[in-house]
Amino acid sequence: MTVTQQIITIALCVLGTMLTRFLPFLIFNESRGTPSYIQYLGKVLPGAIFSMLIVYCFRNVSFLQYSYGLPELLSVSAVIILHCYKRNMLLSIAGGTICYMLLVQLVF
């Protein structure tokens, strides 16, 4: 690939990314107002998005081969327990990450 072709490739990545980020704001701009269906989606989508992101995080974990997703599941449980118990975002994240690092480095 020549340098020009590389620049075009990177520019297309930028263009595609920005299209997906800006499109909703371009279609439903402030002056035109937002249809009630889109307002409804804006309210109910996030709940579904955050579940989708969790699944996205686990897309490369193999549950059928060793280590069967065990370090991931155990560490996620640690995050949930810590968070329900203390409700401190940084503590839950740090605790879960340390738990995962210990598990993958020492146990599995």
Binding site: F50, S51, L53, I54, C57, F58, E72, S75, V76, V79, I80, H83, C84, M89, S92, I93, G96, T97, Y100, M101
Partner: peptide, 12 residues
């Protein structure tokens, strides 16, 4: 895993 932990907390 720090990124996954963050998304789990945000989900919660």
């Amino acid at each position: 895993f720090v990124m996954i932990a963050m998304f789990v907390v945000i989900f919660l």
